[in-house]
Design a protein around this nucleic acid. Structure first.
Lengths: 130, 130
DNA sequence: GTAGCTGCAAACCTTTTGCGCGAAC
DNA sequence: GTTCGCGCAAAAGGTTTGCAGCTAC
């Protein structure tokens, strides 16, 4: 699938790049609607996903909430291929919360989320099962 | 609002606690449907949220995807009160990806997400604007 | 000319909510 | 008996997708 240039995609990228925060798809859509009144929200979603796949943008967070009964702070690891989530052994480091994390913010704690490939997916990749 | 005991809430909690992974609301619902055929998905959501508010469970991830044009790995901080997301100054520590993070997993990297209170919300709290 | 991309709208999935009945106290 | 919680169903987000027409090459 050859990739073509499109004005919409470029403006979507620029909008994210120019933004101070980390905008959601809706925020990008709202920001661009003034100058591109017939832009569609579907186009924004399509292009953000595509830009993330190309590696021009990074996607933060996943869309579905998960629950954990282990209350002691600990880290997790998510499979890049199948989305599985597991506990990681890396201990919580309270020292991280002490530094000057962000100007004006009060830090309460942190989550450490690794990404990688889970054992089941590693096996499938090894056997070329895509 | 006084809190009462309910069989459903207890089984929902136990299901999360007994699970190896970190189940979504739908997974808990599916797991319990066999033994509680008339359990409602709404009840699962209500109770998971309540258990998280009580502190008996931890909720991971938020529901809305956000995008970032800064590709260099870096950390973020999210406001517990308003959900705002900003960059944090804490540098990426490659050493974290080296240890024995999780048995059988291949680690590709990590995200560090702080939580705290943003300057705007801190001001509102100070002035008792809830 | 031919993929690829868009706008539009419908569909889908996740989560929340209003309501009337049953359960806990 | 009085709340509170449940099941049900509808509604409310957020996200994806099918399609016909337009655009980049």
């Amino acid at each position: 699938m050859e990739r073509r240039h499109s004005q919409q995609r470029e403006r979507i990228y620029q909008t994210v790049a120019a933004s101070y925060g980390h905008p959601t798809a809706q925020m990008v859509y709202d920001a661009l609607r003034r100058e591109m009144p017939q832009l569609s929200l579907g186009t924004v979603y399509r292009n953000l996903r595509q830009l993330a796949q190309e590696g021009r943008l990074r996607e933060l967070d996943g869309p579905t909430a998960r629950y954990d009964s282990v209350l002691r702070p600990h880290s997790h690891i998510r499979c890049l291929r199948c989305g599985a989530l597991a506990d990681a052994g890396t201990p919580y480091d309270p020292a991280l919360d002490q530094g000057d994390v962000a100007r004006g913010w009060t830090v309460r704690g942190h989550d450490l989320l690794f990404h990688g490939v889970c054992p089941a997916c590693a096996e499938k990749i090894e056997n070329q099962i895509y």
